[in-house]
Simulated assay, not measured.
Amino acid sequence: MTLGFFAILTAGAGVVFSDVRELLFALSATGLFGIVLIVTLRAERQVPRSVAEAVYATTAANEAAIARKIAGSQVRLYVPDTERSQVFLYVPPTRDYDIPPEPTIPWSIDDEDTGLILEPTGASLYQQFQTQLTGDLGDGVTKLALALTDGLVKEFELARSANVDVWPEEGRATIAVQNGSFGDVDQFDHPIGSFLAVGFAAGLDRPVELNVKPDGGRADWSITCSWDPDTT
């Protein structure tokens, strides 16, 4: 499992590189949470919601602290890497940024201004989602959006409901989520937003920026995924 290797690698590096030990151990905990998430979703025995939320809140707080220290911006960009068949989460140092051409995980250290690069929580969820697909996602953005929200609610049961509006010509999709799991969805790389952003990035083969805010209407949260629509 990729996340398992990631957790072991960063924990081992934490032992060797004392100057970044705290960051590496925190990132190792991130990988372990991803494993716990997948195992929890596959298990027949239900984990109490309060326990799941508490575990994720700690992980999200650690990641957010690391992002503030290493990167600094509020940008959350999910970038596909077709050569390695994966999507990585990029937090740039400022809003004016260039995506690293050859990113490494957990982060690139060749340039101190690179920012933070992580394996997103939604990566393993998306891999699991792909194995459960019974049909092709197709080329349409709307079809992709509906498939992802359907997986979010029916397959993973991460939310009670999710309604999507798509504006292909603007390169934007907004998903209204009700009664989501793992606490507030605006936490760093929350599984719900992360899964959707990874899905759009992989499905559209282009970087996707994620923004999450309280809905204020009939839903709890409004999740917006945006991308460059020029080649959609």
Rank of each mutant, 00 (worst) to 15 (best):
Q132S: 14
G199I: 07
S194G: 05
C225Y: 01
N62L: 12
L37M: 09
D19Y: 02
G171P: 01
Y78V: 01
P168C: 08
D186V: 03
S18G: 08
T134K: 15
R160F: 06
L148R: 06
V47F: 08
Y78Q: 06
T58S: 10
T142H: 09
L118H: 02
D205Y: 07
W167I: 03
P229A: 05
L158Y: 08
Q86A: 11
Q74L: 13
L144M: 07
S226P: 05
S108G: 15
K69N: 06
G12C: 05
A67T: 01
L3H: 12
T30N: 04
S124H: 03
G140S: 14
G72K: 01
L196K: 01
Y126V: 13
L148K: 06
I223A: 00
Y90K: 01
W227Y: 09
S18H: 08
A176P: 01
V198Y: 00
F5Q: 11
F182P: 02
D150M: 12
F6W: 00
W227V: 08
L3N: 10
Q187G: 14
K154R: 15
P191S: 12
T114S: 12
R206Q: 06
L210T: 08
G115A: 12
L146C: 11
L9G: 05
G199E: 07
Q178S: 13
T82Q: 14
A176L: 09
D228P: 11
L210P: 01
D96Y: 03
I117C: 10
D150L: 11
L116K: 00
K143Y: 12
D230R: 15
Q86R: 15
V164Q: 04
R172T: 11
E22Y: 09
E44Q: 14
A145G: 10
G216E: 03
G31A: 02
R21E: 08
D165K: 09
Q74D: 15
F200M: 03
N163E: 14
S50M: 09
A67S: 07
A65L: 09
L196M: 05
Q127S: 12
A60R: 00
D110F: 05
R45F: 08
E22W: 04
I38K: 03
E209D: 10
T104R: 10
V164A: 08
A123R: 10
F129W: 10
D110M: 00
P100I: 10
A123K: 06
V185N: 04
A219C: 04
W221S: 04
V55C: 13
G140C: 12
P100K: 11
G180M: 02
G217I: 02
A43D: 11
T134S: 13
D189P: 02
E63S: 12
D150E: 15
E53M: 13
P168V: 09
G203D: 03
G135Q: 13
E157A: 14
F195Y: 13
T114G: 06
Y97C: 00
K143M: 13
R206P: 00
